[in-house]
Nucleic acid binder design. Structure first.
Lengths: 356, 356
DNA sequence: CTGAAAGCGCTTACAG
DNA sequence: CTGAAAGCGCTTACAG
C-alpha cells in the first residue's frame, strides 16, 4: 500500500502541504521553481493523492454518474466506453447506473443515487434525457448534468447531440440519388424522441424530391431486431414492395436484411437496405450495411468535458455548452442502384450512374 | 445536501458517535434498546453515512473493480448488470474497467487502477481470468479477487463458474437424440479457454454415441457473427453438409442461421442450428435459437458475494469459495429432427419421435 | 506567492 | 456493553 502522503512530499520538497496541494491541483500562484521541485518529488515518491481525503475535505466526489435505461445495448456500450475513457483522462471516475425509464419510482432511485454517491455531475443518455421527472430531481439536488441527444427543453442543461434529422434526410437523399422512388421506412421506438426526428428527415427528403410516400410503407418498430424481421416481412412479402428500406437503426435493418434473404431477394440487386448507428453488427452482416455513423463515444466524452469544466456550473446557457457533433454516412454493400425495371421515369431524376 | 452527520444522530439519540457507528455497521455489543433507538433516529433524520469519511478512516474503499476485455458484448453487459445490482444490495460500489487483453502494458494499467482507486476487491471476467500476468499483479497488491469461468490454477482465487463441458455435451446429446449423426461444430475464439471446454463436451458426446466426427465439419471461429457467416457457408454450401450445426456461442449461431436462410435451407427441416449463451439475439432470431442458458448475472452476483464475505480474505481455498452454478438447455425452434432421408440407420439410435 | 490552523465525518485502538 | 480521544489525508478559509 502506498503509505506516501502529501506530508511526505511536503517534507521532502521543503514546502508546506498547502503548496503541494496547489501544485497537484494545478492552481496558479506557485513559483515555477517550487512547482517543478514539488513535481519532481511527486514523481520520485510515486505519490498518489488519496481520493477519499480529497473528497472529504473538498466535498467534491470526483465521481460522475452515467444513467442509462437499457445498459445491454450496443449503443449503451459505446456511450459507456467513451465516457469512461474521458473520465480516466480527467482523473474523474464514472459510475454507470441502469435506470428503468418505466419504473414508477425512478425519480426516488435517482435522488438516492445522487445523494448516496455524492455525484459531482450526471449524464443522461436517451431516452432518459427527455424525462422531465428526472430533470426535476437533478435540478432540485442542484446537480450539474448534461443530456445526450435530448429532444426538448434545450435551456435546461448542457447538451451533446447530433442532427438526427439531417442525417436521416441525407441518407434518404442518397437512396433517391440511387434511383429509388418507393422507399420504405421503419421508425424506431416511439418512446425515443430521435425516432420522430429521423422520420422527419426521411419525410423531408421525400418531399423535397417530390416523391409520394406510400403510407403502407412507413411502419413503426421498436429498435429491436425482431421488429425488423416482422416489419421487413410486411414490407417485402407484399407484391408492390418498395425497392429500398430505411430502418431507423442497424438492429432493425439487420432484421429486414435477414427477411429479404429468407424471401429470396438479392440485396442490393432486388432491394436496398440501410440502417442507422453503425453498430458492430452493421459491419458484420452480409452484405455489410450502409448506415449513419453516430459519434457515440465522442458524444459521451464531450458530455464529460462539459461536466468537469469549472465554468459549466455558472452558465449552462452559454452556446459553448451545447455541443453539436457531426455524423457520417457510411457507404457499404447493402444499398445500390434501384432495379431498372422499377425506376419511375420522368420524375426529374438523372439516370443513375453506376459505381456509386 | 444532506448535512446530517453521525454527530447529529448521536446527539439526538443521546449516545456517542461510536455507538452510532456500531449500529450502522451491524457490529455486536449494542443493547437492543439502544440499537433500536439509534435506528429510529437514523430513519427520522434520513441519515446516510459519508462514504468518503468512512473510507478515509477505515482505509477500505467499499469499491469493487470489474475488469473486462471487451465491454461492448452482450456477455459483458449481463455480467456488468449482475455485479452492479448485487453491489447495490451490499452497499458497495462497482467500477467497470475495460482492460485490453492484448495490451503489453495491461499489468501496469491494472496495478495503477488498483492503487489509484484503492479497490477492496477485483473481479476478472474471461478471458482475463486466465491471464497469469494479471493474477500476479493482484497477488502482489494483496488484493482479494474472484475469477469468473477460469480455466486453470483453481487454487489461486475464489471462482465462479459453470460446467461448460457438461453443457456442450448435453446439447450435443440432444442433437443426437433428434437423430443427427453428422453434426458440425464451430469452436469459439481459441483465446478463450471455454472454447476448448465446449469442444471437449461436443467430442465426448459424439464419442459416447460412437459417432464419427468429420474433421472437415469442425471449424474454429472467433465468437463473432462474421465467423458464423463464413464458416456456416463452408459447412452448409458443401454437398455433404451436416444435418446440424452446433456453434459455440449465439452470435456465431446467428451467422450460420443467416447463411442457411441465404442458401435456401429450411431451419430446422433441412438443418438444425444451436448456439450457446442465450443472448438476446437468440430470442429474436427467426426461428429462435435453441441454446444453452448461461447464468451470467448470477455468476457476477456470486463473485460480489465472495468478495464482500469477510471470511474470504482468510482462506480462498475453502470449497465454499468455489461457486458452481447450473446451466439450462433452452429448447426453441432452430433445432429439430434430422431429415429422415439422411438418418443413418443401424447406429443404435432409436427412431426419433416427433414432438421433441 | 506561501503557510499554520482548523476541519471534513467517519473509525480505530484504548479504556472502562 | 459504551465512550473520549486521536487520527485518516487532504482542502478551506484566513493571514501575511
Amino acid at each position: 500500500m502506498s503509505a506516501i502522503t502529501i506530508k511526505d512530499v511536503a517534507t521532502r520538497a521543503g514546502v508546506s502541504t498547502k503548496t503541494v496541494s496547489r501544485v497537484i491541483n494545478g492552481e496558479r500562484h506557485v513559483r515555477p521553481q517550487v512547482r517543478d521541485a514539488v513535481l519532481r518529488v511527486v514523481d520520485d515518491l510515486d505519490y498518489r493523492p488519496n481520493a477519499f481525503a480529497r473528497s472529504l475535505s473538498s466535498s467534491r466526489s470526483y465521481l460522475l454518474g452515467l444513467f442509462i435505461d437499457d445498459p445491454t445495448t450496443g449503443y449503451a456500450a459505446d456511450i459507456q466506453l467513451g465516457a469512461l475513457t474521458r473520465c480516466r483522462e480527467r482523473s474523474y471516475h464514472l459510475v454507470v447506473e441502469p435506470l428503468d425509464r418505466t419504473a414508477p419510482d425512478r425519480a426516488d432511485i435517482l435522488a438516492k443515487i445522487v445523494r448516496d454517491l455524492r455525484l459531482d455531475g450526471a449524464i443522461l443518455a436517451p431516452p432518459l434525457c427527455d424525462d422531465v421527472v428526472l430533470l426535476d430531481v437533478l435540478d432540485a439536488a442542484n446537480l450539474p448534468y448534461v443530456r445526450i441527444s435530448p429532444h426538448g427543453e434545450p435551456e435546461r442543461s448542457g447538451l451533446v447531440f447530433m442532427d438526427d434529422e439531417a442525417a436521416a434526410r441525407e441518407m434518404t437523399e442518397h437512396l433517391i440519388a440511387l434511383g429509388h422512388t418507393d422507399i420504405g421506412f421503419i421508425e424506431g421506438d416511439p418512446g425515443h424522441n430521435v425516432s420522430a426526428e429521423r422520420k422527419r428527415g426521411f419525410m423531408a427528403a421525400m418531399a423535397a424530391a417530390a416523391l409520394p410516400v406510400n403510407t403502407a410503407h412507413v411502419l413503426v418498430g421498436d429498435f429491436n431486431i425482431r421488429s425488423g424481421l416482422t416489419l421487413g416481412d410486411q414490407l417485402l412479402a407484399a407484391p408492390n414492395r418498395p425497392t429500398a428500406v430505411f430502418a431507423s437503426n442497424d438492429e432493425m435493418a439487420l432484421g429486414v436484411l435477414i427477411t429479404a434473404i429468407r424471401l429470396g431477394l438479392a440485396v442490393p440487386a432486388d432491394v436496398s437496405i440501410v440502417g442507422f448507428d453503425d453498430a458492430p453488427l452493421a459491419r458484420a452482416a452480409w452484405p455489410r450495411l450502409t448506415t449513419v455513423r453516430q459519434p457515440k463515444a465522442q458524444m459521451a466524452a464531450a458530455a464529460v468535458d462539459l461536466l468537469v469544466d469549472p465554468r459549466y456550473r455558472g452558465d449552462i446557457q452559454a452556446p459553448e455548452f451545447k455541443t453539436l457533433l457531426g455524423y457520417e454516412i457510411v457507404l457499404r454493400e447493402s444499398a445500390g442502384l434501384a432495379p431498372v425495371s422499377r425506376v419511375v421515369a420522368g420524375e426529374g431524376l438523372e439516370p443513375p450512374t453506376p459505381g456509386l
